[in-house]
């Protein structure tokens, strides 16, 4: 049984979610490295945070709002300029198979 904080299976799962193709050697390497990182960060557990509100943002700023006013968009041509493939109107991507997506 893998006793590391981040075991081989977890690395594989995270890689899958991030659409990364990792070799077995890389998986083993990342398992060690990620576990080491977590272990290092664990030092923070020594602090008592029982009465501290979780931080939503590192800046003491809130309510950066803009008015609902139209600004120019890039337009179709510029929008598609960096696309690996397009038909002048749409981005062209490999055929999407029936995997549920969308919000």
């Amino acid at each position: 049984m893998d006793k590391k904080k981040i075991n081989i299976e977890q690395v594989k799962q995270v890689a899958k979610l991030a659409r990364l193709n990792l070799s077995e050697a890389e998986i083993a390497q990342f398992s060690t490295q990620m576990s080491d990182i977590l272990q290092y960060v664990e030092k923070l557990d020594r602090l008592d945070t029982a009465n501290i509100e979780p931080l939503a943002h590192c800046l003491p700023v809130s309510n950066c709002l803009r008015e609902d006013i139209v600004k120019p968009s890039l337009g179709t041509e510029k929008t598609l300029a960096n696309a690996p493939d397009s038909d002048g109107q749409f981005f062209i991507v490999p055929k999407i198979l029936d995997e549920a997506g969308g919000p």
Partner: peptide, 21 residues
């Protein structure tokens, strides 16, 4: 009139990819 986080205009059935920034 505009999107949630940018000033692109919301237009129904506009030319594809014309309201993008």
């Amino acid at each position: 009139r505009t999107k949630m986080f940018c000033g692109c205009e919301l237009v129904f059935a506009a030319e594809p990819n014309s309201r993008v920034c």
